[in-house]
């Protein structure tokens, strides 16, 4: 089997385990867009655990970038320019908070808890992503 798939599966288990642990400790669904977005609101309780969770996320990734050869950050040169990242960032921020979740909140947590709206959201954002990548490739190649 392709080692990428194996790393993907075990990495996924870690993502699921981390999400489950956060759910157990906080009693809140730890989707990243929700955790981050709520930190940006002016009046918000529970900023502490959200901040610590994201700090852990950055630290865990940084640790793995250091110790693992396979987890190099960008394995393939990326031809996209900064303007595309800025535009993509704005759209992702807007869309995830409007739609109530991202790949983790809907795709892992919501679907994992059996929420039907999360299944619909996941199918829709994956289809929209596939459509966009296909169009982008046709336009730029």
């Amino acid at each position: 089997m392709n080692p990428d798939y194996l790393h993907g599966f075990f990495g996924g288990c870690l993502i699921g385990g981390g999400s489950l642990l956060a759910l157990i400790v906080t009693g809140k669904i730890p989707g990243i867009s929700g955790v981050f977005g709520r930190l940006l609101k002016p009046k918000q309780n529970e900023t502490r655990w959200r901040f610590i969770f994201l700090l852990g996320l950055i630290a865990g990734a940084a640790l793995l970038f250091q110790i693992s050869e396979t987890a190099s950050i960008f394995r393939v040169p990326d031809a996209r320019n900064w303007l595309i990242y800025a535009l993509a960032g704005i759209i992702v921020g807007f869309g995830t908070r409007l739609g109530g979740g991202c790949t983790s909140g809907h795709g892992v947590c919501g679907m994992g808890m059996g929420a039907r709206d999360s299944m619909v959201a996941t199918v829709v954002f994956m289809a929209a992503g596939m459509f966009t990548v296909t169009i982008f490739r046709l336009l730029t190649s």
Binding site: I32, F36, L57, G89, I90, V92, G95, C102, G129, T132
Partner: peptide, 24 residues
């Protein structure tokens, strides 16, 4: 939910980043 998911998918396809990996 539907509009948000469509927009998120478009941005995800453009940048290859969803919120978690970008913050990581």
């Amino acid at each position: 939910l539907l509009l948000g998911a469509v927009l998120f998918g478009i941005g995800w396809g453009l940048g290859g980043f969803c919120p978690g990996p970008a913050i990581a």
